[in-house]
Design a protein around this nucleic acid. Structure first.
Lengths: 225, 225
DNA sequence: AAAAAGCTATGACCTAGGTCAAGTTTGCGG
DNA sequence: CCGCAAACTTGACCTAGGTCATAGCTTTTT
């Protein structure tokens, strides 16, 4: 399916582009639907362009021979993914899979580089975007090796609370997926939630989590090691 | 101390720039000496520009309240560091410390952005550079959470063997520092080395490590979980 | 070369958290 | 509204690897 200028305008990637430019770009982008569980690309696939989530939710992850998986990020509507392969190395470093029925936009490397040439602002925006991602990875690596599961969980809940702004926050994914993002497994996550609940810091009801004691949760999150 | 065009020409960051351009840039860059153990910047410091190692060795790491540290990368001569703060967020996300007496070059954000504007090629090179770093982090996150220490160690040795090209390879840092890079501690690294040695895969003599059984080492490195 | 300071090895011990195995609950397709 | 498949919880168990303590070794300083 073809993209429309309206859809493109919603993507953070194209923020600030003129309506005329969007019309031209719309012709060059393709939108496709992917079913729940379907892969947009696999690690090692040649990357001929970049993607963005139009609707739905996509997870980027790496698997291991033993079957365990580590989620690197969840991509929400408006956000691009798979950019790394456009600028370096050409093979995707991880798998991308739709977690719910989703629509994804594709733009070829050629078209993106053309756009970048005509609109250098885009390049700077991309640098800022990759820098942000780098910053997040720095955080993720440090958390994985320096903190224990309850601390990582607490930090996640605080971040989510901040972003959602509403107090009983809602997990945007299954607990198993969250565990995989936090570098652990379902069982351990379940026990950690229980523990925080037992300490009176949170209250859990399905995917809804209410934060009862903000400052105590913060001190759990800071526990390093 | 002022930078010279010759020094700048050696930096991967300025690869491909004309000699005239290098002369102009040399006036804008400052080179300073840092002692072993001295910090170039600390996490949270405002980032007003980027750095590159001219000589010596710099490590980028994050500490935890409990005193443990996770090394994110070792920066060798010619390589830039601290770029992330130039494009995003303005505070450095980690600490940078000289591991041996070193010389580092500094270029202000302003000067770098001026250069980027005049020479768009630099921007694309920077995109490629950040993409490579992102790719490495993807790898590091996955290794930390999916593999055990001996597997991470084996993977490191294979990479180092490849890069150095000589068989008894030489560790470029202390074993304690290597442990911190691999997300573990001295003692565990020591035992892992011993184990690989006991299995006849490597032979260790101080910082020199000879690889005896390449394919066995590869299969240890691939063990996921 | 002696002394101080950092590195490395190794042993005894302990715990966070992964594995395996039942259940139980939730939510979706028919 | 039913039934089946995920998703989730809970318990018993086990192990990788972190902690603590000690001692040998190597390098730099004086």
């Amino acid at each position: 399916m073809d993209a429309t200028p309206e859809i493109l305008g919603e993507l953070s990637l194209f923020e600030g582009l003129s309506p005329e430019r969007l019309v031209v770009l719309a012709e060059r982008c393709r939108i496709s639907s992917v079913n729940k569980g379907e892969h947009v690309f696999r690690a090692g696939d040649p990357g001929n362009g970049l993607y963005a989530v139009v609707s739905g939710l996509v997870r980027i992850y790496r698997g291991s021979p033993g079957g365990k998986e580590q989620v690197l990020h969840f991509i929400e509507p408006g956000e691009p993914f798979g950019e790394v392969a456009v600028f370096q190395g050409d093979a995707f470093p991880a798998d991308a899979q739709a977690m719910v029925p989703s629509q994804v936009l594709f733009m070829s490397r050629r078209d993106f580089l053309d756009l970048a040439r005509q609109d250098p602002e885009i390049t700077l925006q991309m640098l800022a975007r990759l820098s942000l991602r780098l910053r997040r990875f720095v955080h993720q690596v440090a958390e994985l090796s320096l903190k224990e599961v309850p601390a990582r969980l607490a930090a996640y809940l605080l971040k989510e609370l901040e972003e959602q702004g509403s107090n009983p926050l809602t997990l945007p994914m299954s607990k198993g997926q969250l565990a995989s993002f936090l570098g652990t497994i379902q069982e351990t996550l379940s026990r950690s939630l229980k523990r925080l609940e037992g300490q009176g810091l949170i209250v859990v009801k399905g995917r809804e989590i209410g934060v009862l004691d903000l400052s105590a949760l913060q001190s759990v999150a800071e526990q390093g090691r």
